[in-house]
């Protein structure tokens, strides 16, 4: 079943068109990887999925993006509620300059998800456990989040994203600043998270896309050149451009 359906999505930054007629279905509880060279529009597309482009003044998004059959580009959409349902993890870990506990509790608190301190404690614990960070931080929840290593900070950000029980998690190059071990931990986490969440990940690492995703979309110059099962894309893509890119024959 499709969680997200994008139809004829066009994005403009001022006069410059960044995305051209993107049609893409994103299946539920699977990992979809978006690949392509820098500036191809993959991050722009990712940011369309929770209306993060709204914060860029000159950015204009056209077309239909349906999540659970609801067009999120409608004027009446409550963007804060939308981003509660569609969380995001960025390239550089960006914990709040607060305690580990507060990093996780902030979201559930402002969304009124916990009725008592006990409930909030439970959400914090569950989120950290799901992000495979609990054992490493359970004895120092009152220390600042910024004191963790890069890989731990990124898992903290993932824990923060899942604390509000999003249906979709968007990840924009979540491992680009991490070492191979921390990367493997995040990839293992992605495998676990897909049981409950739909994940869309932008990555420059072809091997990472191949390892973690079930569907892959290849973007080039603002166009979605090819989308299909990851297996097909990396073994025998339909488009010559896709093959040139994944085999390192580009440019």
């Amino acid at each position: 079943m499709n969680k997200i359906e994008a139809k004829k999505v066009n994005v403009f930054y001022g006069d410059k068109q960044a995305l051209f007629d993107i049609n893409m279905d994103i299946p539920e509880r699977q990992v979809t990887a978006l690949i392509g060279p820098s500036g191809c529009g993959k991050s722009t597309f990712l940011r369309c999925l929770n209306r993060m482009n709204d914060v860029i003044e000159i950015c204009k998004v056209e077309g239909e993006i349906k999540i659970n059959d609801y067009d999120i580009n409608q004027k009446s959409t409550d963007v804060v509620r939308l981003r509660e349902k569609i969380g995001m993890v960025f390239q550089k870990p960006n914990p709040f300059p607060k305690t580990l506990y507060e990093n996780i509790s902030y979201g559930p608190e402002i969304h009124g998800m916990a009725q008592s301190k006990d409930e909030l404690d439970q959400i914090v614990e569950d989120s950290l456990k799901k992000a495979a960070l609990w054992n490493e931080v359970k004895d120092r929840l009152n220390e600042p989040g910024t004191g963790l290593s890069g890989g731990q900070q990124q898992r903290l950000c993932i824990a923060r994203a899942i604390s509000v029980k999003p249906e979709v998690i968007l990840m924009d190059e979540p491992c680009s600043a991490l070492d191979p071990i921390a990367t493997a931990q995040i990839e293992e986490l992605i495998d676990e998270l897909k049981k409950e969440h739909t994940i869309v990940i932008v990555t420059h690492s072809m091997s990472q896309a191949a390892r973690v995703s079930q569907q892959t979309g290849f973007f080039h110059l603002g166009k979605l050149i090819e989308v299909g099962s990851t297996d097909k894309i990396f073994k025998n893509p339909n488009q010559q451009q896709t093959q040139d890119y994944i085999t390192g024959r580009f440019g």
Binding site: F234, N236, Q243, T247
Partner: peptide, 9 residues
């Protein structure tokens, strides 16, 4: 090199 697609074949 971790070849892919045609290179892997």
């Amino acid at each position: 090199r971790q070849p892919m697609a045609i290179d892997l074949r």
